[in-house]
Nucleic acid binder design. Structure first.
Lengths: 227, 227
DNA sequence: GACCGCCTTGATGAAATCTTGATGAAGGGG
DNA sequence: CCCCTTCATCAAGATTTCATCAAGGCGGTC
């Protein structure tokens, strides 16, 4: 599912335990640090995909940790804090944090905001409303697909699948990612769905469905839209 | 300072006026839409750098607008809503929103969160981290390898092995380390696996597989990627 | 109530990938 | 110089993953 390494910088043991349970249930690996210095060194050595940072640390200020991290890393940072004043939030966000949650927060919201942060990591694609690949034309706002000028009808799932691949054109999307985006968290272990729909997409779009030029299989990994 | 075009989707005129003042004071240009459909079409035609979205719209659900937008755009979306329930937040964030503020919110916090969102966008435009070694190009985000410009197909294990060596380019990785990372703790005593896959990698990547220039054996220790 | 499009699910054969064993070369130490 | 360890290569099964076809179910519409 997520498969991310999360660095948790938090000095209070009960809070650490609580977060560990929640994060591991979501499928993340956890690194734990009790001090800012330890956190910095763990971030450097393990290159986590996300940092969860409590502001009230014994050695260094949390803001200072944020700034130091930002000097060499763009890893997403989510700040957890008991202080909810406007100035605290603005200070943390401007220091380089990506999000700020005030304790007490709900676990569900934290996990959702973590998903947002991890999503950013994968982003970086060009936002073209109309995408042209070979002889295909995908008009996303209108939800239309044309092949050599001829309109092709796609079902909702087919379009969603094509849109996902197109938005990350060139990149491999894993089965897990595709399944989660289209069918939701639950059905992340059903690659069979994908095979059926990829087959249908190829049949409708590819000139020779048996030897696809753009909707490419990456065996054991996922699928890719090749430009 | 910021100079961003912000699309504001909000049906209530007083709120629109309030936000317009705040945003223009910060230096942003503003596009305004009163309905979701209008918002969608403005987003497609003007390609704003940020979307501020009120959830309570007359025609389409705000969540639906988010999903539609996400099909073809990665523009940051900040949701403003009077509803502060956990499920509302999670739903919006998972639909593709990047942030969620509950009314009433402070102007300062909103502007700080906008700065965060715009920062993300800027960070997303940096070129892909492509590793170049001799005549090889390894694009990890795309999961693609080229030798003298020609695409080379790697199997999952081959790619993982190359990625490991590349992440520690120049350093020797022991058999034990490599085996543990790829096959897990159990099979840490099977250097034979490595020989087979190193052979395949050399065959696919090296000009003269028998005399490897980059995938070097460190006899008795492990392997190393030489730059 | 029958039709229709769409989604789900199962079965089957094909393809890609991984594992494993056999064989011989290279290199160092006694 | 011989022996032993480590390494490289090849190739045949074993296993996993993939493609395709088709039947059945579900929900909407006429």
């Amino acid at each position: 599912m997520s498969d991310a390494t999360v660095l948790l910088v938090e000095d209070e043991a009960p809070m650490r335990r609580f977060l560990r349970v929640a994060l591991e249930a979501e499928g993340h690996r956890l690194l734990e640090a009790e001090t800012a210095r330890e956190g910095l060194s763990l971030a450097a050595s393990h290159q986590p995909q996300l940092v969860l940072l409590d502001l009230g640390l014994p050695d260094l200020d949390g803001l200072e940790l944020t700034r130091r991290l930002r000097e060499w890393s763009s890893v997403p940072i989510i700040v957890l804090s008991a202080r909810g004043q406007e100035q605290d939030k603005i200070g943390a966000l401007d220091a380089g944090a990506d999000d700020y949650l005030t304790k007490p927060f709900s676990t569900g919201e934290l996990l959702a905001r973590i998903r947002v942060a991890l999503r950013h990591r994968a982003a970086g694609e060009k936002p073209e409303p109309v995408l042209r690949i070979g002889e295909w034309e995908v008009d996303f706002p209108k939800r239309e697909v044309r092949v050599r000028g001829a309109r092709v009808h796609l079902t909702p799932i087919e379009f969603k699948l094509l849109a996902l691949l197109a938005r990350h054109a060139g990149k491999v999307l894993t089965h897990r990612q595709l399944l989660r985006e289209i069918w939701g968290h639950s059905a992340a272990a059903q690659p069979h769905y994908l095979r059926v729909y990829m087959g249908q997409l190829r049949h409708k779009l590819e000139a020779d469905p048996a030897r696809p030029r753009h909707l490419v299989t990456e065996s054991g990994v996922g699928y890719r839209l090749r430009e």
